[in-house]
Design a protein around this nucleic acid. Structure first.
Lengths: 210, 210
DNA sequence: GGTTCTCGATACATCCACGTATCCGATACA
DNA sequence: TGTATCGGATACGTGGATGTATCGAGAACC
């Protein structure tokens, strides 16, 4: 994938990485729109000159960041799927645990959880405003969602269960409930570790014996 | 409600109204963060002087706007409830129609639909960042949501149906699915009039005969 | 009809972020 | 070790948004 013969120097690679890390932090703290390029550079220990030598604009940075995050989520998802496949979790409420596990894979770090769900919101917003960004962004999202569908399908089959609705709809509903729950949790300030009971309610509705 | 003896001159009232209208427009078009106060004033046909004589900051404007909108949505909701109460819609798929009708009441204008769902996102974001805004904003949202719960409860009772889960959870799920569907619709560019089939799928899951 | 006060307009000073053009040190390569 | 290129730093000019202090017209009130 990506441009084949376009070799990137390791030095450049590192500074790009540090800039992305810093961007994640600063975006999470101050918001994507509100965050100045300067602030990102400062957090990364660089000057604006370095930034403009690596990215053309904040949009480019934004897309590179989501690219990296989506990629990380995809690999995390695959790893989780491998772990779940052969030997399902507890026998108690296997689906709940499994779903929770899969969701945790996509959104692992509880500290980053908050930052990420807020940033995801903002990313979506940027995409909603800029059609050019929208196409790239929604492609990324689609990939992630499809992967989720596949993983859950396989998981359900392994567990001898099935969704009451199409798996695409199921995933859409799950994601919607997940995000909604997380946001209201953030708003009300309740820092529950669990992704709200809403998901589990929905899972009970969605999952039926095969 | 509000400050009792603090009389507001009719003149002031009008300019405030025009500023709010303009803010709705400009916010929808350019985004809340991106929109400059100046732009709002220009759209309203005023100068910045007028603005600062009516609002202390953009946050104040924002809160006044959401206040007005939620109020409007609440009254629309009540009106819809009255219409639905005595004589349910079609006999075909009464719940679907009813739910769609209620949702349409909360989010009526198809043209404003897009603007509003984007703005709602952005509002939530502002609230997520500013704790002071969050308390006021989430109070508004809670009011609206509770009203929705009541309306749907009454509606279901009238139709001889019931939710498979608690009505609060049901409303949360419905709202989540609604927003998620709307946003993905916006992202993919499909300008469906219907609020996506996701809602109907969910309604079928949620609603059972009493 | 005159006086007062309200409210929006005008003008000003400030600040901050942006993007670019240029420079200089370090690294790679011979 | 000498040289050329790469990549980040420095410095500059610019534009736009903010908030405030002041002014003047017109409405309200007697």
């Amino acid at each position: 994938m990506a441009t084949p013969s376009e070799t990137i120097s390791p030095r450049r690679e590192r500074t790009r990485g540090r800039l992305l890390d810093a961007a994640f932090d600063v975006f999470a703290r101050h918001g994507v729109q509100a965050a100045s390029i300067e602030a990102v550079c400062e957090a990364a220990g660089f000057t604006r000159g370095a930034f403009y030598s690596n990215f053309a604009s904040k949009e480019e940075l934004f897309l590179a960041l989501t690219e990296r995050e989506t990629r990380a989520q995809l690999t995390a998802l695959e790893a989780a799927a491998v772990n779940l496949g052969p030997d399902p979790v507890g026998a108690d409420a296997p689906i709940r645990d499994a779903v929770r596990c899969v969701l945790a894979a996509v959104m692992p770090d509880p500290a980053a959880k908050q930052s990420w769900s807020v940033m995801a919101l903002e990313f979506e917003l940027m995409a909603l405003r800029d059609p050019q960004v929208a196409t790239r962004y929604s492609a990324q999202q689609r990939r992630l969602r499809n992967e989720l569908v596949d993983t859950l399908d396989r998981l359900m089959k392994d567990l001898g269960l099935r969704f009451a609705v199409g798996s695409h709809d199921a995933v859409d509903l799950l994601l919607g409930a997940f995000e909604a729950g997380q946001r209201t949790a953030l708003l009300t300030g309740s820092d529950d570790a669990r992704p709200s009971t809403l998901i589990e309610t929905l899972v009970d509705l969605l999952v039926t014996p095969a």
